[in-house]
Design a protein around this nucleic acid. Structure first.
Lengths: 336, 336
DNA sequence: TTGTAAGCGTTATCAC
DNA sequence: GTGATAACGCTTACAA
């Protein structure tokens, strides 16, 4: 069973080993009668070619690589990555590719992992997430001509293949929705001020206010760390304004959620007194009370497109366009 | 850069290609002077051996396989798998192994995936989760002598290598706690009835009832798929009983949460009218209202042990003991 | 101690 | 059309 190779099939079918290979590859040049004979033996013995030998010979492993920069416990709680992984696997599977996932916590181990995956040719291509603005890895991969696709933003945008969600558009969508439902004093709680996502979404927020002719009040802006407490205290401060905000756009679901809790603790009714919108449409949203309206960034779409692009690159097709933007989607629930 | 092989290193270092291989393998037989020469060239050119060639030659891919039986969207929201994946990767990495994750939704595709991973020798071993009581895959793998470790239970227990959390004990712990806090009509919502985890936890539930001398009422049992709707409708049915349950043990946090929401929608107060306990202590638990009491199964420990055992098997060491049990832990919150 | 050479199981290029 | 045969890049007897 274990040592079943083409040569064995060939012997039993009374043909040469090369013919077995041809039949398996679907070569149209082979005689029907021989094809039948070979396929019969293959079927009977359940022969499947050895991926290792194929990899060496074809210089292709049919393995996509994904490296995640999170400690295991951080990864564990993050719905983004599990969604990403699951969707990449699915899309890869359609093209008969598999996914190899690695984690790299420290900067050193990151370099090592990339080095390893790239140089050992263990994977045919890489999907990169959470890249920084000037990312050595990216320059490196570009130089080497190694196939890779970025999830996120990069400048110059057309230098690399990338997919991203439309952060400006997503925040516009959230704010616009609140304005349409009659809210006028809309606060924005961002994450750390340096993050591009914080800034992009702030931009979308401003755009929406402007498009409705609603004045922009800088006092309604707050920035929080990614902790419950930080978001809560930002919210407390916003509530001390007169008049207080009647809606809040939070950078992500956890921030929105923590803010919402704080508001409730101050006796606000949600959504009557104040509405809340988060981002990511994480599983959490459905389970809290009131359930949290959220802007879904379509991670499965993102992942599918990334995998699709990467496979195209690997197989020598130049993806067009090189940059794809996935629109966001409003998931309406009780909080707004 | 791309076509850098040992023979090239050998040429530049003025040695034979075999010597390069020996140096890289850390063979103590080689002359120090030669080793220096070779390593210098290796360093300078940043040579790394081709994993594909190594795989073919050594008959080892250094890849562990994990197959997950969930649709991508079900996987996406499930903290269990992300925790599992993350911890396996980490442990594997310590031994210079990588992880290949696949999903298989349908029974047919499951077979196909196993077939593929096993027969193509794409991975050196498999970690199996969510096995069923009489699992063809397991018999198959055993027959073939393919290295694999089960996360979960299997009979006879010493036929295969496995790690498991103490599901019977965990459910006992949950049910016992509810009984001690005065609950008497305790319902159990399992997952699909064939799953061993469903049955083991049912057993623990029954054991606890018995140990408290509380009668077992089969009407208080329900089985749900791993979807919100399914758990909710199971809960709705339980609520229609007279009298309704005063506590629910859910197979996992998501099931417990979905059930809890359904109960609240029916006007039940939690925990006053009805208490809820889930399993896994997922991040979600803290954010819902009321926060969910949960039995923590130590997934990282489970994953680490599984990976450790699998690697031992692959490398020809017989793990002792063949079965490892990881105890559970009660995390008390508001819902019970 | 180092070099030579025979595979590992495929695929692909030749002749026939 | 089909069958030898040479790679693919590495490991490892075996020879020197």
């Amino acid at each position: 069973m274990a040592d079943l190779k083409q040569i064995e099939i060939a012997r039993l079918a009374g043909v040469s080993q090369a013919t077995v290979s041809r039949v398996l590859k679907g070569d149209p040049q082979v005689n029907d009668e021989m094809r039948e004979r070979v396929l019969a033996v293959v079927q009977e013995l359940g022969y499947v070619p050895d991926a290792r030998a194929q990899s060496l010979r074809s210089q292709r492993t049919r393995l996509l690589g994904l490296v995640v920069h999170r400690a295991p416990d951080a990864l564990a709680g993050d719905p983004f990555f599990s969604a990403l992984i699951a969707s990449i696997i699915e899309q890869a599977g359609r093209h008969d590719y598999h996914l190899c996932v690695d984690t790299a916590r420290t900067a050193r181990s990151q370099r090592a992992i990339y080095e390893e995956l790239l140089r050992t040719r263990r994977v045919d291509g890489l999907i990169l997430v959470e890249s920084e603005t000037h990312d050595k890895r990216i320059e490196r991969l570009s130089c080497e001509g190694f196939p890779f696709v970025l999830i996120g933003r990069y400048d110059p945008a057309d230098a690399v293949c990338s997919v991203d969600n439309d952060n400006v558009g997503a925040a516009f969508m959230a704010t616009d929705y609140l304005l349409r439902t009659g809210r006028r004093r809309i606060a924005y709680i961002g994450g750390p001020a340096g993050l591009t996502v914080t800034r992009d979404r702030l931009q979308g927020y401003k755009n929406a206010l402007e498009s409705h002719g609603v004045g922009y009040d800088p006092r309604l802006l707050a920035f929080a760390e990614f902790t419950e407490r930080s978001a809560a205290s930002a919210m407390a401060e916003l509530l001390s304004l007169t008049p207080p905000p009647d809606a809040v756009v939070g950078l992500d679901d956890l921030i929105a959620l923590s803010a919402m809790r704080e508001a409730k603790r101050h006796g606000c009714r949600v959504p009557d007194d104040i509405a809340f919108i988060g981002f990511n449409d994480s599983p959490l949203c459905r389970y809290v009370e009131p359930s949290l309206t959220s802007i879904a960034v379509e991670i499965p779409v993102l992942a599918r497109k990334a995998a699709e692009m990467l496979i195209a690159l690997i197989e020598g097709r130049e993806p067009q366009p090189k940059r794809q933007i996935v629109p966001a989607r409003l998931v309406k629930r009780e909080s707004a």
